[in-house]
Design a protein around this nucleic acid. Structure first.
Lengths: 147, 147
DNA sequence: TGGGACCATATGGGCGTCAATGGGAAGCGG
DNA sequence: CCGCTTCCCATTGACGCCCATATGGTCCCA
């Protein structure tokens, strides 16, 4: 599989590290992603992680605007000020820094959530709650996938 | 990485100094920036800091206009009158002067914010507030990254 | 079909290096 | 002559890199 799918919850160890699930790591290898671009998500209290191409895409979006405009500055504040490159160690683990903890509420466990071209890091109860709300909203609207 | 990314908050010591985060210092070395050009940001209540090339770019922009135009005068007032060169000490720390404090509201802590080709110094609560507002604005406008 | 060997992932921790921080002392300017 | 700044050194703690062990699942063979 070449997309990030499903979700996995794993524990943070005593040194503040967490193993990135192997299903996600194998996708990273397939896509030849050496270093993760992680940013504070625009919509959810989660960290989104993907390849450097994600950042490139955002920057192209900024470049299309007037660099002095408030909108371009706000966008940069989010993707540059709210983003960081993170490397995995030789065992495929990443450090859970305060940058991640403060924004997500993550304390001792991380839920990794696949989002096709990227994946996210969630505080487990927050994910359960938001996912349930999303399911409920969809049910109320009576939406069905158009096949 | 060759860009300024992410944000880090650190304390000002008893002598009024603050350590520039090592992630930013390594970018400064890569770009061969010896001395920081710091100016009062045009958009946010923050000090922007980058290499001398930043100032050069601004000056070229002025030179392209009629030197007696109100725009050129305003611009010079901002980048010359509102700018200063600052050196780091041998440990990579900088003095937090009143020039910085008065404009930003910084008191005892500084949030360093990466902005790709430069970085900024913020009063921590101000940054949290403005970044959250930027995120909210984006969410309301319904903007999504163009895939 | 059950047992066992093997492999891959997950997890825990040791250790060296480097960044962050605090403070002494000399240099410079007012 | 005094205060601020800059240079230098020491200490502490965090992080990166590495290896050792645990765990669970699969495959093969008896």
């Amino acid at each position: 599989m070449n997309r990030f799918l499903s979700n996995v919850t794993s524990k943070i160890d005593a040194k503040g590290r967490v193993s990135v699930p192997s299903v996600f790591r194998s996708v990273l290898i397939q896509r030849n992603i050496q270093e993760l671009y992680c940013f504070q998500d625009f919509v959810f209290p989660a960290i989104s992680a993907g390849g450097p191409d994600l950042l490139d895409r955002f920057e192209r979006q900024i470049a299309a605007e007037d660099p002095f405009s408030p909108e371009a500055n706000e966008m940069s504040l989010l993707i540059h000020g709210g983003g960081v490159f993170i490397k995995l160690d030789s065992e495929g683990r990443m450090m859970v820094t305060d940058f991640i903890r403060d924004f997500t509420g993550i304390v001792s466990e991380v839920t990794f959530v696949g989002r096709a071209d990227h994946f996210q890091l969630w505080h487990p109860p927050a994910f359960a709650e938001v996912q349930a709300a999303a399911r409920e909203g969809r049910r109320l609207r009576g939406t069905r996938p158009t096949v």
